[in-house]
């Protein structure tokens, strides 16, 4: 009941924060509200899947793309992005983006033109931006250089390719700017969303991953650090001048995933089975909890509407993954089974 109350109380805030003047006009359908879990599947196994979780009645529906559309989603679902009524699912090893109406999850199209190792997608109006690692030869030498595919979402055609740094990973649109974390490097780049000009480059700790924005309109980026170097970091970037506002050295290597709470003042991330929280005004992060029953955390999410943390366990990729919901004090609310390799969560607006 408390949760429900929280949801009700937060609803006006959400509406306001969405910037909508009227009621939110999401799609209709069975999956129109709730949480999507992106299960990447086994590499080469062709068993990527999407789960839907309805927090109101705690119902889980696994493999919804296949159950609705009658075909496999593909190999390695890397990420999913919502925009309007549509969900864009980047299927890395199938070199495509599957588009569905997320309310019904019926397929509405596929983007595949020009892609090479697609990773993440961001949408600005009717323009889609997809980060691509490019292609590699036998010796893992780059053949096609890394790029951002710019896609016209009215017909899903490729508009152009914008050169990116090595291993472009998470991609984030904010106030007419496109931020890209180049995960094989030590920088984040900013591009103009209209003419794709490079606006600036921020140097930070090696291996930048997921980007979030805080209440001060600053970006926070998690850097995994160098391999085995115990030198990961959280970096705060000024979105106007692309300078580093703050760098928080972690002393360990975190996963390259980062989420922010509803109040935009607390970050959550993990390393191994340890979940950390970081109040952006604090000097350093604190251990929130250890997921003792987990084989290995593989993804993290934060539900604004529930004020809960979602954590995915890939269970060694040897079977179904599982998801735990945690209160912000680290205590476990419940767990539910999902598909193979849950790597991220997408919450409906």
């Amino acid at each position: 009941m408390k949760k429900l109350l929280a949801v009700l109380l937060l609803t006006p805030v959400l509406l306001w924060s969405c910037g909508d003047d009227d009621e939110p006009s999401g799609p209709a359908g069975e999956y129109a509200s709730g949480v999507f879990v992106i299960n990447e599947g086994n590499f080469g196994g062709g068993n990527a899947s999407i789960s839907h979780f309805d927090p109101v009645n705690s119902e889980v529906d696994n493999g919804i793309f296949t159950s609705v559309n009658g075909v496999a989603l593909g190999d390695v679902a890397q990420s999913m992005t919502l925009s309007g009524d549509q969900a864009y699912i980047v299927v890395n090893n199938s070199t495509k983006v599957e588009i569905v109406n997320y309310g019904t999850f019926t397929s509405t199209g596929t983007i595949s033109e020009g892609l090479a190792n697609p990773r993440y997608m961001a949408v600005n109006g009717t323009t889609g931006f997809i980060s691509n690692w490019g292609s590699f030869d036998d010796k893992f030498q780059q053949v096609e250089p890394p790029f951002i595919a710019v896609v016209d979402l009215s017909d899903n055609s490729l508009t152009t390719k914008v050169n990116a740094g090595s291993g472009p990973e998470h991609i984030f649109v904010f106030e007419g700017k496109l931020f890209v974390s180049n995960s094989f490097t030590n920088n984040v780049q900013a591009f103009d969303v209209e003419n794709y000009n490079l606006l600036g480059t921020t140097e930070l700790t090696q291996g930048p991953g997921q980007i979030v924005i805080d209440g001060d309109n600053n970006l926070w980026v998690v850097s995994a650090g160098s391999f085995g170097g115990n030198d990961g970091a959280l970096t705060c970037i000024n979105t106007s001048n692309y300078g580093v506002e703050r760098e928080v050295r972690l002393g360990f290597n975190p996963a390259s995933r980062l989420v922010v709470n509803e109040g935009d003042n607390t970050l959550y991330f993990y390393s191994g089975n340890s979940i950390y929280q970081f109040f952006t005004r604090d000097a350093e992060p604190a251990l929130l909890t250890e997921m003792s029953g987990f084989v290995g955390i593989y993804g993290i999410g934060y539900s604004d509407s529930e004020d809960l943390i979602y954590v995915g366990d890939a269970v060694g990729f040897a079977g179904e993954g599982k998801v735990a919901r945690l209160n912000t004090d680290g205590s476990v609310v419940d767990e539910f089974p999902v598909g193979v390799g849950p790597n991220s969560f997408v919450f409906t607006p």
Binding site: G44, G45, G46, A72, G74, D75, N93, S94, T95, D138
Partner: peptide, 11 residues
């Protein structure tokens, strides 16, 4: 031989 729906090409 790649998996069904997989575009990867190794030798």
């Amino acid at each position: 031989q790649p998996g069904i729906g997989v575009t990867q090409k190794d030798n």
